[in-house]
Design a protein around this nucleic acid. Structure first.
Length: 211
DNA sequence: TCAATGATTGAG
DNA sequence: TCAATCATTGAG
């Protein structure tokens, strides 16, 4: 079947807004990922994080060159970078052109009966074969792109959890991470399905800090 | 130039 | 708890 005829990507103005708001609103929307052989996969966005130019944890904090230059481009583009020398992370640029901002995709829920391991920012890019070389700066609002963001069912506030971000060393206090409550595809380190020793072990943890 | 680091993950 | 592994960063 020809799916392309029905594809209506999220419009660029959706991304041309405050980054934190875009991160929250992206939950429930979908990612269409095409492969080299004409096939595609459809996934639901269930966990995101926001990064802005004013944010110490953002790659664009205090700089405009190198990889950070992508974050100043027009909204709705892919920002893909390599982390820890082995994993790619997928983001979408936000804010008007000239202002830095991006939303990191931390977890996706496979639709169409797929069972891809897409829980976790490094896992989802590996499962969908997303790389900096092939996907950085592609237009996620273009119907023909290898990666396209599609409208999905909106998620009410009552189903969304807002917390601090994962794995960062700066800006740790900012509550800029969003995920769908109870969704089994939310990344494990995110503490969603199994948070066992949070209650008993108190001040031994290094990155645990709940306001 | 060169050493340190990180928006992670899987193994031990 | 810790190593894998490299583009990017910041110091010399």
């Amino acid at each position: 079947m020809n799916t392309d005829a029905h594809i209506e990507p999220l419009p660029r103005p959706f991304f041309e807004r405050e980054t934190v708001q875009v991160a929250r609103d992206l939950l429930g929307h979908r990612l269409l990922a095409r492969d080299n052989s004409g096939g595609y996969r459809l996934l639901r966005i269930v966990e995101t994080e926001a990064y802005t130019g004013d944010d110490p944890a953002c790659h664009a904090y205090g700089r405009t060159t190198g990889r950070a230059a992508t974050l100043y481009l027009k909204p709705g583009l892919a920002y893909v970078y390599l982390i820890y020398g082995m994993y790619h992370c997928l983001n979408v640029t936000t804010e008007p052109e000239g202002k830095a901002g991006a939303v990191l995709f931390r977890a996706l829920e496979p639709l169409d009966g797929d069972t891809l391991p897409t829980h976790g920012p490094g896992r989802l890019t590996k499962a969908l074969d997303i790389t900096r070389e092939a996907h950085n700066e592609i237009d996620l609002t273009h119907p023909q792109s290898p990666l396209v963001l599609l409208s999905g069912g909106p998620v009410p506030d009552s189903r969304i959890i807002r917390t601090t971000r994962i794995g960062i060393t700066k800006g740790v206090e900012l509550p800029w991470r969003f995920y769908i409550d109870g969704n089994p595809w939310v990344s494990v380190k995110a503490g969603n399905p199994s948070r066992k020793k949070a209650a008993k072990t108190k001040a031994t943890s290094k990155t645990r800090r709940l306001p």
